[in-house]
Design a protein around this nucleic acid. Structure first.
Lengths: 297, 297
DNA sequence: CCCAATTTGTTCGTATGTATC
DNA sequence: AGATACATACGAACAAATTGG
């Protein structure tokens, strides 16, 4: 028995939602009884919470879970699949394999939340109505927190947007680079809720049809002049923002960002941009912008 | 053959992310090859998008999917489980059973997003920092949209909070009713993104330990006087808000909400309230507040 | 109310693939 | 390179739930 610390002990919790379907509920209101796999998934989830497991901690392996819950392999696999989709566990094969707790990634959460808005047909001005509220605060919050690495990433974005776009492909990549600028700020934000909201909005904006058409038909037709105005406007604003950040002037950054978003909103309206109705698979990002907040040696 | 419209035709899409693991990627960077069930789930998802299926539309049944994708029953079930967890499909047994497309519910999205923040230890003042930005705008937006039904729900919340709390249990329910007040506003909001953000924040605030302790130990100890101050403050603010709404005065509503959130934030700070680190199962709501936006006959 | 058909839910046995030592 | 330990996948059989007569 190689490692006794690996043996985990399960705490069976009285599930409040495992109430018998009997009582006095009318038939139409009665929720369907949970499937066994869902029940197992909930058990494991509460177990993670009760034990206070951290990302990287190992869960029992399939065989152990089968014994513990008295269900079959298939059921356990469905439960693990559920947790895997939620991003809570990662499961791998081989010796030392099995399910390990994972911290839910931003990308995963973004995908899952984007599923919700898939059915809500969100207009772009509605996105900007929220963005207008959040981004100025974000700018003010990160002004005295941006590192030299962050500045380099911001400059990389500005640099990429400074060139005259040679073709549609380039124009599309410049739009992505603009959003990367804002992602750098979100990544530097100490407020996880504000940071996620801003990053999510950026992910939504990556899916504007106007821009994705540049991506889809790189050889077809001209670039609308409104796009050029949007680009020049945005570039100038980003330069002023970077300047404010360098001066560590939070209030100036807030003001610049406020103006920037307002003008961008107007330009987007002129473009009649709309959010494309699609599931987000992997966020499109340009590879030139260096990952932020990673201290470079 | 009872219904020929039931026969669905599949469109196999070239999956861009199904690239062979071969090329020039270094071993450490190489992502794990997708499992069959994940691949099937992606296929079905893109199929939903391409066909433009709407909630309620039926997917092929297990047997048909097995034939279509050439995988086993277990694999199909894992794929369906994935989509079910994401909230995209609902599957039922019996004749006419099978998987149907579902619009992702708010509660499901809230749960999934809450998983992300479980590992981010979010402080309550950070939640309020965002709430302060969003709620005033929400108030202004819904001022001329609230229906008589909404007003009744708002008054139900105020009514419940107007009574002197008899015990801790009652105090806890009054806190929930306060949040229901804000949920009514969010439900009336025409901007889905703003509405979701506000509802999500409300869901987070339902999990403040200070309040959940009232719920957990209803007989133990006294209610802190700070809680009473928070309650009276909030009640007065809600009354002023309702008044502004009745007058359809958007700007007054914005101002009142701004002051309300600021004061609530200070009171919460005095209480040293923190967001409990737990998975959200089912949102706690008081049953007295009538569901909003449902025209009553 | 029960019965029968239909479709998902669950189980078991077995074989294959993959990572670790 | 080979043995081991683990998840992944398949297939067949049976159980449970829902619908409609």
């Amino acid at each position: 028995m190689p490692g006794r610390a690996e043996h985990v002990k399960f705490i069976m919790i009285n599930m409040t939602n495992m109430k018998k379907s009997g009582s006095g509920m009318s038939k139409s209101l009665r929720r369907a009884p949970p499937k066994r796999s869902d029940w197992v998934a909930e058990q494991i989830k509460t177990w993670i919470a009760v034990e206070g497991l951290s990302p990287g901690d190992r869960l029992p392996q399939e065989k152990a879970l089968i014994d513990r819950f008295g269900v079959s392999k298939g059921t356990i696999r469905e439960a693990l699949k559920s947790l895997e989709v939620q991003g809570l566990v990662r499961v791998s094969t081989g010796p030392k394999g099995g399910a390990t707790v994972a911290s839910v990634s931003v990308d995963r959460s973004t995908q899952l939340l984007a599923n919700y808005f898939y059915f809500q047909d969100l207009a772009i001005d509605q996105v900007y109505a929220v963005r207008r509220l959040l981004e100025p605060e974000l700018a003010a919050l990160v002004a005295d927190r941006l590192t030299e690495t962050d500045f380099q990433a911001l400059e990389a974005s500005i640099g990429l947007c400074s060139c005259a776009p040679a073709d549609k492909q380039m124009t599309y990549r410049q739009r992505l680079a603009e959003l990367d600028f804002h992602d750098v700020l979100a990544n530097a934000c100490p407020n996880p809720l504000l940071a996620f909201n801003c990053r999510f909005i950026n992910a939504l904006l990556r899916d504007c049809t106007v821009f994705r058409k540049l991506y889809a038909d790189p050889d077809d037709g001209d670039i609308p002049s409104d796009v050029h105005r949007l680009a020049e406007d945005g570039l100038a604003a980003h330069r002023r923002l970077l300047d404010a950040f360098r001066r560590r002037d939070a209030e100036a950054a807030r003001r610049e960002m406020h103006d920037h978003i307002l003008r961008a909103e107007q330009n987007m309206a002129a473009l009649e941009a709309v959010i494309e109705r699609r599931f987000i698979d992997e966020p499109h990002r340009v590879d030139l912008a260096a990952p932020a907040n990673k201290p470079l040696a």
